[in-house]
């Protein structure tokens, strides 16, 4: 029987709400880093938003960039410290809306960083506003009170479909609604770190993650919503894997 123990890099409880996917993602990052023996050479770049909760929680050198700019912050750090393991952890508002330019050009430049995007379908930390890229049609948010309407608010878009056309090393989407999907998400995140260790190019892993607080759902129902609704629009799996053949 394998032994399951909290990774040593997790040194404090996070400030996340109960049932938030950010906590699971933090653990998967720490497990992947420790399994690869990279814990002494990490520079973590976290976005201003709920990703920032990992600042106190994970025992790595950290920098919090201006909201939305985290892919550029990580790019700069990787350029000057190519020996370091640099990861960017950000929400979907940061990565796909306000910071879509930064995400895009980190991908286009094929910077060998590991980017982890938390797709919770809203702007979490600021109280649950609609996310143009990821809020589902019909979902109620504080800025789409009667539910998102395609006619006036546009439709969700799968940004990994765009990113895969930029010739990046690896793009994949995972989910957290059961242990099978948590295991798969871990494999994607670990692969993102292996690719960086082997200097292969830009790796991005998006994770379908619940925000029970702003979805106004019980944490168990929030996981069910991801399984029954969000994953239908944002399928999990590998979008591109170049296998090191630049």
């Amino acid at each position: 029987m394998p032994v399951y123990k909290t990774p040593k890099s997790i040194i404090a409880p996070s400030g996340c709400c109960g049932g938030c996917g950010h906590g699971i993602i933090q653990r998967l990052i720490a497990e992947s880093i420790e399994e690869l023996g990279l814990q002494d050479q990490v520079i973590a770049c976290v976005d201003i938003a709920c990703s920032e909760w990992s600042l106190d929680c994970l025992d790595y050198d950290h920098i919090a960039g201006p909201h939305g700019r985290i892919a550029s912050v990580a790019t700069g750090i990787k350029k000057v410290r190519p020996d370091k393991t640099v990861y960017a952890l950000a929400g979907d508002g940061s990565s796909y809306v306000i910071g879509w330019t930064e995400t895009t050009y980190a991908a286009v430049r094929d910077i060998p960083i590991t980017m982890i995007v938390v797709n919770n379908g809203i702007f979490g930390m600021t109280g649950g506003q609609m996310n143009l890229a990821t809020t589902l049609i019909g979902d109620k948010t504080v800025s789409s009170k009667a539910g998102r309407r395609r006619e006036t608010m546009g439709h969700p878009v799968d940004m990994l479909q765009a990113i895969k056309t930029f010739d990046v090393e690896f793009a994949a989407r995972g989910a957290l609604y059961d242990t099978k999907h948590i295991d798969e998400t871990k494999r994607f995140i670990k692969k993102g770190f292996e690719n960086q260790r082997d200097n292969k190019g830009f790796s991005i892993i998006e994770v379908l993650s619940p925000c029970p607080t702003n979805w106004k759902l019980d944490p168990v129902d929030a996981m069910e919503k991801i399984k029954n609704e969000n994953e239908k629009v944002f399928p999990v799996g590998v979008y591109t894997d170049r296998g090191g053949n630049k």
Binding site: M1, P2, V3, Y4, K5, T6, I10, P13, S14, C16, G18, G19, C20, G21, H22, G23, I24, R27, T179, I182, D183
Partner: peptide
């Protein structure tokens, strides 16, 4: 049965299985 599903699922690192 010590399967570890609780460890994998918990966002707040409550569980140890050994």
């Amino acid at each position: 049965i010590g399967c570890g599903m609780c460890y994998k699922t918990c966002p707040d690192n409550v569980f140890t299985v050994e």
